[in-house]
Simulated assay, not measured.
Amino acid sequence: MIRFAKGLLGPLLLGAAVALAGCSKGPEQVLYLYNWSEYMPQEVLDAFREETGIRVAYTTYDSNEAMYARLRLLDESNAYDLAVPSTYYVNKMRNEGLLQPVDKSKLTRFANLDPQLLNQGFDPENQYSVPYLWGSTGMAVNGAAVSTDGVTKWADLWDPKYKGRVLLTNDVREVFHIGLRVLGYSGNSTSEEEIAAAYEKLRELMPSVRAFNSDAPRMPYLEGEADIGLIWNGEAVMAQEELPELAYVYPEEGAVIWVDNFVIPKNARNVEAAHKFIDFVLQPEVAAQISEEIGYATPNLPARELLPPEVRENRTSYPTEEDLENAEFQSDVGEALLVYERYWELLKAGH
């Protein structure tokens, strides 16, 4: 999968090698990065080390909940320097004192970011976060196994013909989003009555569910285990390289829209390196390489101009306004998250 599609990082690596030639070696610096699975090309980590001499120790998670739980337990002896929570978790972690402010004076390329994705409600003035990638959670339909005709809504997942062939992500908010939206409620509902109703609706879907997967949700489709269900748009792009018949659908009830952001945990050991890495990724050439490699949309405006037309114009990665009609950004639901989690455990336990 990893490739130098346009050789965007080649000049960076060459320049870094020249700059570092003859430098004396001191103690190795390490940046501890905690990120989603399959969410950072290895070339980027290698190029950063070549340019700065800082090695990236890379650890992954498969859900915001897992990331949050781990960061709460760590102290300065084993803390991470960077993490990449999704939209509403930035707000949650900020409010709980789990993050430290980002020093934007150390980010020479912050102006590259799309203003429409900055200064959002989950982090006013981006005091604690810097957008990394943004995307959507929609529906995958394997056209090689089932007809894609007429599949336009979340409600289509409940069709009995898909029994045992539906995939869901292992994400409480995304799964409850579809239950809530099918019932006409907001995916950000804080009403226990509405969340309970979504739970009952999702219970009806469970006989059709083959698996929950947030490690690599494209794989059950590629391996023939699932024919329809949830998928992140970047995973759909990667899947389409091997399975062109896989369709990505923006459901009529509204897709989930999210922004994944760099944040610096409060106990970070190498804050200077964290800022250097963020600024490195904000280079247009690097941001374009990341978007092209893993299929998600970059918030970096100059980077978009570097993308090949077939990438920049791919609606799976870069949706139209029509695609996003009725779509919702996930927001912090406060104490209602405990309600979601209680019903989530019941749902997964088959109750």
Rank of each mutant, 00 (worst) to 15 (best):
M1C: 08
L13E: 13
G15R: 10
A17T: 05
V18A: 15
G22I: 03
S24N: 11
K25G: 05
L31P: 05
Y34H: 15
Y39D: 09
P41E: 10
L45C: 06
R55K: 15
A57M: 12
E65S: 11
L73C: 04
S77N: 14
L98Y: 09
V102E: 09
K106W: 01
L118S: 06
F122D: 13
G135E: 04
T137C: 14
N142A: 15
A144I: 04
T152D: 14
A155R: 12
P160T: 04
R165N: 14
F176V: 06
G179L: 09
L183F: 03
Y185T: 02
S191Y: 08
E192C: 04
E193C: 01
E194I: 02
L202T: 12
E204S: 11
L205G: 09
R210K: 15
N213L: 02
M219K: 13
W232T: 07
W232N: 13
E235Q: 14
A247D: 14
A247V: 09
A247G: 02
V263G: 11
P265G: 07
P284W: 02
S291I: 04
A297N: 08
P302T: 02
P309S: 10
E321D: 15
D323Y: 05
A327K: 00
S331F: 07
V333E: 07
V333L: 03
L337E: 13
E341I: 06
L347F: 09
